[in-house]
Design a binder for these strands. Structure first.
Length: 416
RNA sequence: GUGGGUGUAGCUCAGCGGCAGAGCACCGGGCUGUGGACCCGGGUGUCGAGGGUUCGAACCCCUUCACUCACCCCA
């Protein structure tokens, strides 16, 4: 009989990878706390309408990547493809804007997109998502980028680049869009079919196309950067100035755009050449109109997402276990009876005590202890039991000493 | 959704028409109470699945599934 496997793009995360996840999360949480970010848990399943309204009807995510289905009551529901929409919904539902002048929130969890899996891309993937509501000043953008910079520093990740750009506000984006469409109409023949279609619906996305022909076509295209209004330009310059003060190195990429419609002004990406084709492992930007568009008051927002799987690929070194590992080898029935009292005593003292089950030959047990990386092996056979002692073997140098067989006192004695 | 690559032991892989293999891991022994180094022994398998060609298929053909990389898209 064929055994069942997980769905394509859905994985089990365990072993070294989950240790990397834990390491990343711990580093991130430390800075979230220092900078006043509060945790929020939001549902994995939401009304489909939420994502259509926030992410944008014509984006690829909404058009062809969402896990959308009809539930038993006939409503269209969707597994969240990203977290911002849900957090905005929660922010409005809880009327947080009326309770605090600024809200700093973060959430950690799985997202779902029905894409073809490849390196660093899965259908269920994990993000740490951070959002700031109520701060129009670019300080909030800079703070977010700096925070990622700090987390990466803590994790020892160095081979990456911060790319940053501004996509402007509604006003300058409209100006730019007109100019861009005017320009591209003249180059229409050279565009790939995808981009020809984007011309009407979402011309900004043509900048993301990796097709060589399109890349050539847009070489001389106008860039949003040159169309920024005075306020947007000032916002961007201020943001860069803040990054400088934080000593965060960055590269301005005037062609950087993002795949979600709600972004305004600041957009940024952290990329690494160590990742393969999916090289962005953290990205985000400002969304000053989103809260209002979702039916709330006019409140600015800015946020980012960190891709756990991708960042985990960049975390090279795992810290070694710091507490020594003890192992109990026992031989004979008299000795076996001491397993539970000793295990109880060690664990109650916060010390790890491993053991083989079943207890085979002493040789086999020591071999097992060695494979577990035990620092010390306690050896207990009937002979020791009758003498009221236990042997403690140092697994590094092979020296042994006798200790009294006393569960209550042994954990402390063993520590030395 | 499209294209390329790969599916053989727990893991990494060799074998590419003639008995199913290696290294590592694992188990046992040398050492009946002492791990790591060494020596000896042990193969633990629907060769991804289904069908076809053939005296004979892990190998050739068809179908299918899975994994993987890339396109696309994105964290």
């Amino acid at each position: 009989m064929e055994h069942l496997t997980a769905l394509r793009g859905f994985r089990d995360i365990y072993g070294e990878e989950i240790e990397r996840f834990t390491l990343i999360e711990r580093a991130a949480r430390a800075y979230f706390q220092l900078l006043g970010y509060k945790e929020i848990e939001i549902p994995v399943l939401e009304k489909t309408e939420l994502f259509k309204r926030s992410i944008g009807d014509t984006t690829d995510i909404v058009e062809k990547e969402m896990f959308t289905f009809t539930d038993r009551s006939g409503d269209s529901v969707t597994l969240r493809p990203e977290a911002t929409a849900g957090i905005v919904r929660a922010y409005l539902q809880a009327s947080l804007y009326a309770k605090e002048r600024a809200s700093r929130l973060f959430t950690v969890g799985p997202m779902f997109r029905h894409e073809r899996p490849q390196k660093g891309r899965f259908r269920q993937f994990y993000q740490m998502d951070v959002e700031v509501f109520g701060i129009a000043d670019p300080m909030a953008d800079a703070e977010l980028i700096w925070m990622v910079f700090l987390i990466l520093g803590r994790l020892g990740v160095t081979n990456y680049t911060v790319e940053i750009n501004s996509v402007g506000c509604r006003g300058c984006r409209d100006e730019f869009r007109k100019a861009l469409v005017r320009f591209l109409e003249s180059k229409k023949e050279g565009l790939c079919t995808d981009c020809a279609g984007r011309l009407d619906r979402n011309p900004l996305r043509i900048f993301d196309c990796k097709n060589a022909a399109c890349f050539d076509a847009i070489t001389d295209a106008p860039v949003i950067f040159d169309y920024l209004c005075d306020e947007c330009r000032k916002h961007f310059d201020d943001c860069l100035g803040r990054l400088g003060a934080f000593h965060v190195p960055y590269v301005v990429n005037k062609r950087l755009v993002r795949g979600l419609d709600y972004y305004t002004r600041t957009v940024f990406e952290f990329t690494s050449p160590d990742l393969g084709a999916q090289k962005a492992f953290a990205a985000g930007g400002r969304y000053d109109n989103l809260v209002e568009e979702m039916g709330g008051p006019s409140i600015p927002g800015t946020g980012l997402a960190i891709g756990m799987e991708r960042l985990a690929l960049l975390v090279r070194e795992l810290p070694p276990g710091q507490t020594p590992l003890y192992f109990l080898a026992r031989v004979g029935e008299e000795a076996e009876a001491w397993l539970i009292p000793l295990l109880d005593a060690f664990v109650s003292s916060g010390m790890p005590l491993a053991y083989a089950q079943p207890a085979r030959s002493l040789k086999s047990q020591l071999k097992y202890a060695n494979s577990l990386g035990a620092d010390y092996a306690l050896i207990l056979a009937d002979e020791e039991v009758s003498k009221g002692i236990v042997l403690m073997r140092d697994m590094k140098d092979g020296t042994q000493k006798e200790l009294p067989l006393d569960p209550a006192g042994l954990p402390r004695l063993v520590k030395g």
